[in-house]
Amino acid sequence: MWKIIFIVELLVNACIAFTGFYIISKIIHSTHFSSSTTTSVIIGLATGLLGVLLMFKGIQVNESLRMDLRHLPLVLLAFYGNRFPLVIATLIIGGSRFLFGITPQAFVAFVAIIAISTGMVYIHRKLFNRPFRQNLSLNIWALLMITFAVLINLGFTDASLRLLLATWTIGLAVGVLSSLLTLDFQMLNRQVELYKQSAERDHLTGLYNRRVWDTRTAGLEQEGRIYNVLALDIDHFKHVNDTYGHGNGDLVLKQFANILMEETRPHDVTARIGGEEFMILVYDLAPSKVNKVANRIRERIANERFQLDGFPAITVTTSIGIAHGKHVHIQQMNVLADEALYTAKQQGRNRTILFDQADQQDIAASHSSTETTT
């Protein structure tokens, strides 16, 4: 009878473990939480509760012995390198052992869980680039620590040896399956991320593409927030392509995009619209402040040495048009920014022109007196 119970409980525990792995992996790769700390705490709590559930369920090895798979959730966190969640989960799983009584056996089990997690951190660092070997090593390390704990608590008895035989057999079988499942999750999430980047990012510069720009700016006039649209392009970029080749033109575009990323805030939307044309969405800045931001970008670019392949480094300049407004449709703001950019070009390039929709007037920003060309 106990053999039937053993098979049923083994399947139940495996289903619990795999379902928990799936849910935790989804949380790990989720972008819906407000901060990384919040995500880490949720992951740690979820993993700890999964370990406690596996401990309480257990598997009936025979009429008198039970084992559990509480270590498997820790393997998952160690594999992903989530150290803070690993600490939380370790304390929850280890501390829950005292619910059965504050005994020397409980203390040994607690120390074993701490040792398992500590060793896992080292294994993850050493085998980071060998995922399957890493995952297998994490499982073996956990089983070794469990072995020491069982031998300390039960001694070298027939009961402890039977328990360890079942623990290693089931632990390795379920551990290998969970390793393959974890690797499959990781590969799937990497593919999803690659597809997402391919759909959202410009292939050359890594900035957002036109489709993301249109999506992220849709409905801005309904948000009731002040926002600014910056239109930029590289002055005389055709001359760069004609003189140094399109390959070097691509190098200039990449370096130009890197500067834009460095000079804008993480929540600003920076996109390459096409060719040498770029757009930046900047929230909540008054005309004077966004004007300073634009001129900082312009001056940084003018002072930068752009590295080329097979030619000496060159300098380039940028012209910037800004539309500032509130409750204005994004298409109109784009047109106003483009018109301001065109005005900057007409006035000699390497300068910033700001159009304040509220005042219905163009404001010429500070600019260099001498145009820089290549």
Score class of each variant (00 low, 15 high):
residue 111 V to M: 10
residue 78 A to G: 14
residue 104 P to I: 09
residue 94 G to S: 10
residue 87 V to Y: 12
residue 110 F to T: 07
residue 97 R to S: 03
residue 94 G to M: 09
residue 78 A to N: 05
residue 79 F to A: 15
residue 95 G to I: 08
residue 92 I to F: 07
residue 109 A to R: 05
residue 111 V to F: 09
residue 112 A to S: 14
residue 96 S to K: 12
residue 108 V to E: 01
residue 109 A to G: 15
residue 89 A to M: 11
residue 102 I to H: 04
residue 75 V to E: 01
residue 109 A to W: 13
residue 75 V to A: 13
residue 95 G to E: 05
residue 79 F to C: 03
residue 107 F to T: 10
residue 87 V to M: 15
residue 112 A to V: 10
residue 89 A to S: 15
residue 103 T to K: 00
residue 105 Q to E: 14
residue 88 I to R: 01
residue 86 L to R: 04
residue 102 I to C: 03
residue 95 G to V: 05
residue 108 V to K: 05
residue 109 A to Q: 10
residue 100 F to R: 13
residue 99 L to A: 15
residue 108 V to L: 04
residue 101 G to Q: 11
residue 78 A to F: 12
residue 87 V to P: 07
residue 108 V to G: 02
residue 83 R to V: 15
residue 95 G to N: 01
residue 98 F to H: 09
residue 76 L to I: 09
residue 104 P to G: 11
residue 106 A to S: 13
residue 90 T to N: 03
residue 106 A to W: 04
residue 104 P to E: 00
residue 92 I to S: 08
residue 97 R to F: 00
residue 93 I to W: 01
residue 91 L to I: 14
residue 111 V to Q: 00
residue 77 L to M: 13
residue 97 R to Q: 00
residue 81 G to T: 08
residue 84 F to V: 11
residue 102 I to W: 10
residue 103 T to F: 02
residue 101 G to F: 09
residue 87 V to W: 15
residue 110 F to C: 02
residue 81 G to W: 04
residue 106 A to T: 08
residue 92 I to V: 14
residue 103 T to S: 12
residue 110 F to R: 02
residue 84 F to M: 13
residue 104 P to K: 12
residue 81 G to L: 09
residue 101 G to R: 07
residue 103 T to H: 04
residue 81 G to N: 04
residue 84 F to N: 06
residue 78 A to Y: 11
residue 91 L to K: 05
residue 104 P to R: 07
residue 85 P to N: 11
residue 87 V to A: 14
residue 82 N to H: 14
residue 85 P to Q: 08
residue 91 L to S: 03
residue 77 L to R: 10
residue 98 F to Q: 09
residue 78 A to W: 04
residue 100 F to N: 14
residue 105 Q to G: 11
residue 82 N to K: 15
residue 84 F to R: 13
residue 76 L to R: 04
residue 98 F to R: 01
residue 94 G to D: 02
residue 93 I to M: 02
residue 75 V to Q: 08
residue 100 F to M: 12
